[in-house]
Amino acid sequence: MDLGELSSCLGSASCLVTQVSAGLTIGLLLFLVASGLTLIFGVLGLVNFAHGTLYMLGSYFALTAYGATGSFLAAMAAGAFGVAIVGLLMERFLLSRIYGSDVLMQLLVCYAIILIVDDLVKIIWGGDFLKMDLPDAFRQPPVIIAGGIIPYYYLILFGITATIAVALAYGMGRTRFGRTVRAAAVNPGMVGALGINTAAIFAAVFGIGSLLAGLAGALSAPIRSVVPGAGVSILIESFIVTVIGGMGSISGALIAALLIGFTRSFGSIGFPLFTEGMMFLMMALVLLLKPSGLAGKSQA
């Protein structure tokens, strides 16, 4: 613990700028993963423990596509759409069989998927740490604001993730599709009776969640090491976000993801060994005081 260093950082503008930008970037990337997780839980009632695995696959797909084409856009598209396809296959052939069964079943099926995919990744890409290169266009000197250093790629990440967050909020809140999805979450039987194909809605939601996880994996490939099993830590953080924000709530996920992002960036200065403990402490407090989460509606 080094709380003195933390308070001196809070007092200096340069350190504050650096940490806030890092926290925002971590938080928004986390939001992409966690929003899919919370959406899938809210609509399908499924706790997708394999969500981190989709994130990891996104990183690997992007890495391979970038190596083959050298185009950043192609890498991002490969990560996002490749994982969406994998997610849809997973949903159709495995997970749709266990909708409505208890959480123990869901845990075990997802655990099996994690074990299998981790091993397949090891066979295809090897077990070593990999990293995706950045295209030349993104290799700019870091931006300096008030003495604080912000890597150029962080600004790009911030732009992309913030755009998606807004698009997601608009799509779920204002479009016809968003309304249908929300209705299906509350009463799938009634929605089905109105002539809407709920199985297709469920698959689409799972596809969108997978796409977001894959995109987050692709975006993070240049800044984090890509390795089999990389999905686990992001899965745990996404769970914390989902629980703190309220399971099923996208706006709650955004608030919680930023909270976790800042905990990570400032915690690495003040209590580096206890950052994970701090996140779980927050999760435990939320569960004890308001189990439905910060933005969740309380249920009986």
Binding site: M1, M247, G277, L287, L288
Partner: peptide
Amino acid sequence: SEIYFAFLTLAFQMLIHSLVIS
């Protein structure tokens, strides 16, 4: 109950894990 119980026990376990590590 149910899922919240599962997550809270998980949180406490990881909290103890972090305490042991730090």
